[in-house]
Amino acid sequence: METKFQFSAEAITLANKIINRYPEGKSKSALLPLLHIAQGENKGWLSVEAMDYVAVFLKLQPIEVYEVASFYTMYNLKPVGKYVLEVCRTGPCCLNGAEDVIDYLQNKLGIKVGETTPDGKFTIKTVECLASCGTAPMMQVGMHYHENLSKEKIDGLLEEFGK
C-alpha cells in the first residue's frame, strides 16, 4: 500500500529497536509506542495515512490500528495547534481552581475547549487526572507539566510560546 506519510530515518531506527523489545511474533505490542512516534512526526496528530503507514510497518490490518488509536486519549485524530494546552479537569485540580484556569485560557485565546486558534498555534484540551494533584492546578504542554498555575504563570507561558 502506498501512503504519503513516512517515518524519518531516525524514527525507523527507533521503531525497530522498540519492536525488538517484544518476543518473536509479538510485534503488535509495539503499536502504542509506534503511534506516539507517528504522531510526533505528523504535527501532533494521527491522520489516516499515518495510521495506515504504522499498520504496514507492523504488518497489521488498518482496523487494528484505528480501533487502538481511537481508544486512547493521547492520540489526536484531528489536526491540533502547535501547542496543545492539556488542562487537568479532575476533582483535586478543581479544588484548587482548575475551572478558573480553563475559563482564563478560553477568554485569553478566544477559543473553547477542543478548538484551535485560527493561526494554528494553540489548542485547548481538557484531560483527566495527570497525577499532579499536589501541585494543582496544572496543564501539560508537550513533554512538560506546568504546575501550580496562576494567571501570571499562564501569561508568562503563553508569552514564551509566542502568543
Binding site: 503488535k28 505490542s29 502504542l32 487502538v68 481508544f71 486512547y72
Partner: peptide, 21 residues
C-alpha cells in the same frame, strides 16, 4: 512500555491487553 492515556489500563488485565497492542 508507554500507555496511550486510559485510566482503565491500570486494571491489570486491561494493562496486559494494552501491552499486547
Amino acid at each position: 512500555h508507554p500507555g496511550g492515556g486510559a485510566y482503565i489500563c491500570g486494571e491489570e488485565t486491561a494493562l496486559l491487553e494494552s501491552l499486547e497492542g
